[in-house]
Design a protein around this nucleic acid. Structure first.
Length: 280
DNA sequence: CGTACACCCTGGCCGC
DNA sequence: TGCGGCCAGGGTGTAC
């Protein structure tokens, strides 16, 4: 379930364990995920130390020494799993979805598992990172300093698309997925069907604050509920979180004194959950 | 250009 | 228990 908060939680877990460690072996078990691995993927990263692990939207940016960056996206089902070297669980031996296995000096083994293979891994030079096709068109970073109410309002200018679709458009705001789009609109009290450009400055301010709050709380929940952000089985960044509207169709609205019932509609082929009373 | 939809892939769940 | 249909938190390419 990787949206921005989950990717950030994974980032923190990986950074804590792997920063400064050297990749000593890479077992790449198939030629592609959503896109092909770059030529000589394993060869190009083997032997390099990890300088830092950063994030842009839902992309992990694993900075290796000498200016090489491993760009990773978890797609829908991608997971990063840390295992003690040699301690591979029996169930994992026959698991066909463990696609890449990174071995380190003096650090847990990192396994990339992705059943649906909507994730990706590729390489880019540090200097060309900002202009890389995967990253160049990304919009506002919701937890970044430039994500202001005015910037969000401006980004919605001319967008006649429904608010829900605008929030999922990574070229407008980057990192929000289906769950947190629903949660943020609920918290801001905005109807998902509103044209994005129709938001007033005041409404854009409410929405920007709701987005930041919802994402921040989810990150806090991930961080506080996991020791070092790692489950007992080594899986990183997936945590129980209570949602106010997501997947709650037919259940009562949680807003105090609201007697609404959470509804579901389909926008851009994806479910939207909302309270028709609070989000009128 | 903006918007709408099919599609990529596997697994889990539901109803029959 | 088996099987078909539907759904899923991602993004992209194509057609209008």
């Amino acid at each position: 379930m990787p949206e921005l908060p989950e990717v950030e939680t994974v980032r923190r877990g990986l950074a804590a364990r792997l920063t400064g460690r050297r990749i000593v072996a890479v077992d790449q078990r198939r030629p592609d995920l959503r896109i092909p691995f770059p030529p000589d993927f394993a060869g190009r990263i083997t032997g390099r130390r990890i300088d830092a692990i950063d994030r842009r939207a839902k992309y992990l940016l694993i900075r290796l020494e000498a200016g090489l960056v491993l760009i990773a996206h978890l797609g829908m089902s991608g997971r990063m799993i840390l295992e003690e070297p040699g301690a591979v669980p029996d169930a994992a031996r026959s698991d066909p979805h463990r696609h890449v296995i990174f071995t380190f000096d003096d650090a847990p083994t990192l396994v990339y598992r992705d059943a649906r293979r909507f994730g990706l891994m590729t390489l880019a030079g540090e200097t060309e990172l900002a202009s890389h096709p995967l990253l160049a068109r990304l919009g506002l970073e919701p937890l970044g300093a430039d994500f202001t109410a005015a910037a969000l309002h401006a980004a919605f200018t001319g967008k006649r698309t429904p608010l829900k679709a605008a929030l999922l458009d990574q070229t407008i705001v980057a990192g929000i997925g289906n769950i947190y789009a629903c949660e943020a609109m609920f918290r801001a009290g905005l109807a998902p069907t509103r044209a994005a450009a129709s938001l007033t400055a005041r409404e854009a301010k409410r929405l920007a604050e709701a987005i930041r709050a919802v994402l921040g709380e989810a990150i806090d929940a991930g961080g506080s509920s996991l020791r070092d952000y790692v489950h007992a089985d080594g899986e990183l960044g997936y945590f129980q979180h209570r949602f106010a509207v997501y997947d709650r169709a037919g259940a009562p609205c949680l807003k105090p004194k609201c007697k609404g019932t959470i509804g579901r509609l389909v926008q851009a082929n994806r479910s939207t959950f909302f309270c028709p009373v609070c989000q009128a």
